[in-house]
Simulated scan of single mutants.
Amino acid sequence: MVLGIVLKNSISLLFLFFFVSCGIKQKEYSENIYPYADFPQEKEIIGEVIELDSVLLRYPFRIHIEGDRAIIMDLHGFDYYGHLFQYPDFQYLCSFGRRGDSPSDMLSLENVRFGKHAVWTLDANKKELTRLVFSPSCDSLLRDEAVTLDGDLLRPLDFAIYNDTIFIIPDYSGEKRLCWVNRKGNLVNKIGEIPSDNEEAMQYARPALAQAWRSFLDYNSKNGVLAVVTQLGEVVEVYNLKDTTHIVRIGEHGEPEFQVSGGYGIPIGIKGFSDVQVTDSAIYAVFNGTTFKELAKNNGRLPEGGKYIYVFDLKGEPLCKYILDHSITGIWVDEATKTILATDVNNDQPIVKFRFG
């Protein structure tokens, strides 16, 4: 009798274990999609504020450095969107990208890229790429060429330079993931798919889905790696353009969450990544993680930017999470000196230097 009760209880427990196990079965992903939750290393790093006394910046969103020249992009600049500095002392040299309505002015600035002996800018409102060249003394930038983008391209919100003749721009039509655009502004190719498992949106609301999957990108021509990170959710895509592989890494916050309203995607999940850089050996990305519920609860008064830098290898495998003492939006990484320069829009002195490694 006792044996029968024990067997009965054992069978009940076995059934309960089977039921619970099925209930918590891990989500299955496609063969090139891999989840991640933890980083092998977590380190806290302290920032050193760089004093700038020569130019007032309203919203310093991006920083790019090439040799002894640094560019700080001011998303909401009073008169100019871009500022050129000498590096590493950050002596102010000039401003460029005048804000205005004339043909040579800019209506917006999405990003700035150093090209070969030149600087390229992207104006989403004018759908225009502009090439600026250095003056003989290299202390100013002169407008040299303007490229009007193909009418089939929806609002371009970031770009990377692939080579002397091709730019890479995210596709916001929802048809593909990335657009290849030539030096004349013509769309020559589209590649990739939005790696979403939202079947309803994939079928009925692709433009809204593409908006929710708005991403920042960076390309390293030395190793052929293009990294794409989502502004919402926690998704990192790694395209190796030399061997044509594509790997997707999805963090614990999942893919971008949104609701469709009036044909637009309204975010309801978290603020994700805000910048990414592909170095010769790794991928560095600024991560936020704040929920939109938290933002609403605090009436938008939380600091702008993220307090984490995530580091992945060139296949997207997590390596290290850096925890910062500043909230930042943009980064530039120098692996040779183990230095990260970052933009902090919350302070009057907006450039912060971190030492890592």
Rank of each mutant, 00 (worst) to 15 (best):
M1S: 14
M1L: 11
V2F: 12
I5A: 14
N9I: 09
N9T: 08
L13K: 11
F17D: 13
F17L: 13
S21D: 07
N32V: 06
Y36I: 03
F39L: 02
F39Y: 08
P40V: 11
P40D: 13
Q41Y: 14
E42C: 00
I45L: 11
I46L: 04
G47H: 12
D53H: 06
S54K: 05
R58W: 07
R69E: 09
I71S: 04
D74F: 09
L84P: 07
L84D: 10
F85E: 11
F85W: 13
P88W: 02
Y92C: 05
Y92Q: 08
C94P: 02
F96S: 14
R98I: 12
R98F: 10
R99C: 08
D105H: 14
E110F: 02
R113I: 01
R113T: 01
G115A: 04
V119L: 02
V119H: 01
W120S: 03
T121R: 09
L122A: 02
L122C: 04
D123A: 03
K126T: 13
T130N: 08
R131H: 01
S137F: 03
L141Y: 04
L142F: 00
R143V: 15
D144G: 03
D144M: 06
E145N: 12
D150H: 09
G151N: 15
G151R: 15
D152C: 00
L153H: 09
L153N: 12
I161Q: 15
D164S: 15
P170D: 11
Y172W: 03
Y172P: 02
K176T: 12
K184A: 04
K184R: 06
N186F: 03
L187K: 06
V188T: 11
V188G: 03
N189S: 08
I191K: 11
P195F: 11
N198M: 07
A205L: 00
A205M: 01
P207Y: 01
A210K: 09
A212G: 14
Y219Q: 10
N220R: 01
N220G: 07
K222D: 15
G224V: 11
V229I: 15
L232I: 03
E234K: 04
V235K: 08
V235A: 13
V236F: 01
E237L: 13
I247W: 00
I247A: 02
I250Y: 10
G251V: 12
G254D: 00
P256H: 07
S261T: 12
S261E: 14
G262A: 09
Y264T: 14
G265S: 09
F273K: 06
V276G: 08
N288R: 07
N288C: 15
T290I: 07
K293N: 09
K293F: 13
E294D: 11
N299E: 14
G300F: 07
R301F: 05
L302Y: 05
I309W: 13
E317Y: 14
P318V: 06
L319T: 08
L319Y: 08
C320I: 10
K321Q: 08
L324N: 09
L324G: 08
L324C: 09
V333G: 04
L341I: 15
A342D: 03
A342Y: 02
Q349N: 04
Q349P: 06
P350L: 10
V352L: 00
R355Y: 14
